[in-house]
Each structure stands twice: as structure tokens, then as C-alpha cells.
Nucleic acid binder design. Structure first.
Lengths: 190, 190
DNA sequence: AATGACCTGTGACAATCGTCACAAAATCAC
DNA sequence: GTGATTTTGTGACGATTGTCACAGGTCATT
């Protein structure tokens, strides 16, 4: 839990008492590669703090996998829409490597937040970071071409390229595997 | 302020006392068409509750306008990244019609939130809605084609089509104006 | 060494898209 | 109403992309 505590302190002031109050909502969990954190159709009642390893979110449409997000150490993975509104999730979250997460249980988290405003503030900050990330990637598609999106990831988020295969990255960039391969080729020629 | 109060009550339990504590952070403002709520390069220190009219966020890249979001009545408009981290905004927010907004001042809001957990919770819920919306639109680009994105907007967010011109909508969908026009033509022929 | 699973590249071809240019239609200001 | 401005549609053409098919490479396991 040390990584989590550091992460929390980087986000907001957090007393020992708040940390104690938060404990009942936390649950450390180890997952094997390809185990699900969240399945399509389920309601998401958890936030997943990624302690070690990484996971991805993906839609499966007509049998085709479309990756929508990658979550590494010190990220929070969840389905905000399902978590916040109690709706069924339209996508999956799956471990891409052996994965260690700290699971925040929604109900117990809300109970704890009522007792300590620091926990409420922590929640707000977690969601703020999440929103910030989503905004960043949503805008990528509106202002950049496929090639520019790749270059953006290369400069601003090299960690993704270091750990995710190009096949996996392609749908995240909104292009086919073959197109991503050709974009890379085009550049080396010029 | 009636609309805002209803909006708040739809999000979270909110006492009269919290409402009073919140007042110093609020400031009603009227803007003409094409007035800026936020300019590129500025730090965003406000949340804008849209009371009447609508506005949009856009990047201007090499002189070309790229719309990234539209905000209507009962939406909150802001730059989460700038607001949360105190960074300069990379995009603009501008009134598309005569606009009435309630401006939340960041510092005064945070001060009020320290005194009432209900305000802190309100903040969390506002950001949660924002994150939810961003996630929805970010995923659109990863899982759908341009035509499918248009159809998604038509069925799930018809209010955008009713109020925004097709020229304005095009960059939001990540295509050129001409392509959007042809997608519409293609469909009427089949 | 052999096997199988996965990843990457590439050729061919059709579909889609961006850009430039211009015209028609709709809207706005006076 | 009239002229100006904005919006939308469309033709032409080159660039980019998706799809299908196949080949070579890497890596872990046996």
C-alpha cells in the first residue's frame, strides 16, 4: 500500500486518521494476465489503483477488439459512467500483464468520504485527473491527423509505446494495424 | 440562479446553508455573441455554468479553427486541465449566442468547499459528469467511423445538431466540412 | 530443433477523405 | 426588400485509409 499512500499524498493533504478511515474500502488484489477487472454488462462498483503491471479498456464490436485506454502504475482505472450512474459497462477492462491493484469499493468509499472531507477531496482529485486525461485524448482526434496523433504519443506518452505492442496501439489511435505500420514507414523514408 | 439551484439539487443533497456558503463564489454574467469565456494562454480559474445560450471550446491551429466541445444549458464549461493544475489553456471558449452564465470562482469555491462537505461533493459530481462526457466522446473516435459518429450524435445528442451548424459540427466530428456534407448525401441515396 | 502463438510489414485494390475551387441556398443587417 | 455574409453542396483529383492475403520475425515452450 506504500505506492498508493504516496500517490494520495501527491494529490491532496491526507491525515493518518483519513488513511485509517479509508482502509475498510481498500482491497489489494493480484490478477493474472488476461483476467478481467471489469466485464461488459457488469456495473462498475470499483476504482482500481494500478500498483504494478498494466491493463487496458476495450470494446468488442462484431468480434473486433477496439482498445480505448491503457492504465499503468499510479493510474486509476474505472468506467466513470458506470461507476457514477450505476449503468452497465459497455466495455471491458483486462490485465495485460500480471497485475497488482488496490480495489476501492464504491459503497465503502462513499461511507468513508462522509466521515472525512479529505477523502471526499481525494475522490474529486482522482476524477479530475481522469477527466483531464480523457479531455486530452478526446481532443487529439479532433485536432490531429493519424500521423500527428502517433507523434503526440511518442513525445508526450512514450511509456505507452515502450510497453504496448503496435497492434494494440493501433485501435487506440483510431487506425488499423496496417495503417499504423505504413505511417511509421512513411516517416523513415522522409 | 434558479436553474443552477435545480441543477445542483439534481446532482447531490444540498442544504440551504451550503447554498448560502456557496454564494460568494458565484457571479452571474452576460456575454455577447463571440465574447470569450477563456482565451488561449490564460489560466482557467473558473467553472462556467451555462444558464442560457451556448458556447464552444476550440483550438486555433495554423489559423484553422478546430472545435472540440459544445456546451448548452445545464452544462459546465471549463478547461479541467488548466483549472486543476494552474496551467495555461491551449484552447479558447467562446459564446456562440448571447450567453448567460454563472461563474464559479476557483479560490472562493475551494474556500467554501472547506466549510461544507456538500460543496466538495458537488464539485466531485460536476467533474464526474464532465469526465463521463469526455470519455464518451473520446471513445467515439476509437470505435466508430466518421459516418457512425454522425449517426451517434444524431441519436444520442440531437440537441447539438439542432443548434450547431454543420460547418461547426465537422471539426468536432474530426472530418472536413466537405466530407460531412458527402456523408449526409451518401446516406440519403441509400 | 521443432512447434505454435503473436507481432510486424507489405502488396493490391477499393473506399474514404482532404483540399481547392466554385456555385447555390439560407441567413443576417440595414 | 436588398445587398452582404454565412452556410451548404459538389466536382475534380491526389492522398490516406481499410481490408484481405500472405510472409517473415520473435519468443516461449516442449
Amino acid at each position: 500500500m506504500n505506492n498508493l499512500l504516496k500517490y494520495i499524498h501527491s494529490l491532496t493533504a491526507f491525515s493518518d486518521k483519513s488513511w485509517e478511515l479509508l482502509q475498510p474500502a481498500l482491497n489489494k488484489k493480484e490478477l493474472k494476465k488476461n483476467e478481467f477487472l471489469l466485464k461488459e454488462g457488469q456495473v462498475c462498483n470499483s476504482l482500481f489503483y494500478i500498483d504494478d503491471g498494466y491493463c487496458k479498456s476495450y470494446y468488442e464490436i462484431d468480434g473486433v477488439v477496439k482498445n480505448t485506454g491503457f492504465f499503468f502504475e499510479n493510474d486509476i482505472a474505472t468506467n466513470v459512467n458506470s461507476f457514477g450512474n450505476g449503468l452497465k459497462s459497455e466495455f471491458n477492462i483486462i490485465a495485460c500483464e500480471p497485475l497488482t491493484v488496490v480495489v476501492f469499493d464504491k459503497n465503502k468509499l462513499f461511507q468513508a468520504a462522509k466521515q472525512a472531507i479529505e477523502i471526499e477531496t481525494l475522490g474529486r482529485n482522482c476524477i479530475r485527473l481522469f477527466a483531464s486525461k480523457q479531455e486530452e485524448f478526446a481532443n487529439l482526434f479532433k485536432i490531429y491527423s493519424a500521423q500527428e496523433r502517433l507523434e503526440y504519443i511518442e513525445t508526450k506518452h512514450p511509456e505507452i509505446l515502450q510497453r504496448v505492442s503496435l497492434s494494440q496501439l493501433a485501435s487506440f489511435l483510431g487506425v488499423s494495424r496496417e495503417t499504423l505500420s505504413r505511417i511509421r514507414k512513411r516517416r523513415t523514408l522522409s
